[in-house]
């Protein structure tokens, strides 16, 4: 394997993860480079989403789970007892599989988080909304209907509201859990372009079922199978000349 060189923002070290007695991840060690897009691929149930949710402690919310090993972000293990998961999630944002805007106006969807962490000034909030929606390439479509419910938008637009909402918290890393699997091809293309744009300012880690998508948008790709990281490589290398035969079997469609 080609190890990712320096500039790592997050590293996992010997991660084992359990749902009750079921071991979902085995000894996963991987590094995520800053300002790059890293894709996690593999068949359903291989542990890729579990790993993603480990990176900002979203798995804490599920009863009966257990983590062994370390996730290092800015030189500290985010699973240390003195680390506040709420703080971690502010720095490492998340976009979910199904668009999940709040039943509020577009404006209030974006300002919900910032308001609660102390941004009170109205013009500051307005600027933040414009900036975040611009970053999510949604501003031109919604600038005249900011007061309308986000639930009225199309699925693709809703997902971009969710991205804008995450960006408004000014995170360093954006985790995306199959963000386009519930969307039509045109919306998917828009989100993919957006990811390309966003990596200038953010580190993006994306789980995807769609191998073409991983090949199109990512710099690095990790292939998971049965809870193990089988191969982790430059995307181009992994898709054209994989080092492990299981990877080749998967990307050529022989299983999964």
């Amino acid at each position: 394997m080609v190890a990712v060189q320096n500039n790592n923002i997050i590293e996992t070290r010997n991660i084992n993860f359990y749902y009750g007695d079921f071991k979902a991840l085995t000894n996963v060690t991987m590094e995520f480079e800053q300002n790059k897009v890293t894709a996690l691929i593999g068949p359903s149930g291989c542990g890729k989403s579990t790993l993603l949710r480990l990176l900002n402690r979203m798995n804490d919310l599920i009863d009966g789970t257990r983590v062994e090993g370390e996730v290092v972000f800015e030189d500290r293990n985010i699973y240390d007892p003195d680390v506040d998961p709420v703080e971690i999630r502010r720095r490492i944002g998340m976009v979910f599989q199904k668009p999940n805007p709040f039943p509020k106006s577009i404006f209030n969807n974006i300002t919900y988080g910032p308001k609660l962490i102390g941004v009170k000034n109205k013009s500051e909030l307005e600027a933040l909304v414009e900036q975040s929606l611009n970053q999510a390439s949604l501003w031109n479509e919604v600038k005249d209907i900011l007061g309308q419910s986000a639930m009225m938008l199309s699925g693709g637009q809703q997902q971009r509201v969710c991205i804008a909402r995450a960006l408004a918290m000014k995170p360093d890393v954006l985790l995306m859990d199959e963000p386009t699997s519930a969307l039509d091809p045109i919306s998917t293309a828009k989100i993919e372009e957006l990811i390309e744009e966003l990596k200038k300012d953010y580190t993006i880690i994306i789980v995807t079922h769609n191998m073409q998508q991983a090949a199109r948008i990512s710099d690095y790709t990790g292939f998971f199978y049965l809870g193990k990281l089988i191969e982790y490589n430059l995307t181009e290398k992994l898709f054209t000349n994989p080092e492990v035969s299981q990877t080749e079997d998967y990307i050529t469609g022989r299983f999964g």
């Binding site: 999630r89 999940n100 609660l116 995450a166």
Partner: peptide
């Protein structure tokens, strides 16, 4: 919906505020 809770917690909002808001 559970997705509302996840959305709020995923932004780094505390559980208490998520419940309240």
């Amino acid at each position: 919906p559970q997705t509302f809770r996840e959305a709020s917690l995923g932004l780094g909002i505390s559980k208490w505020h998520t419940i309240l808001r």
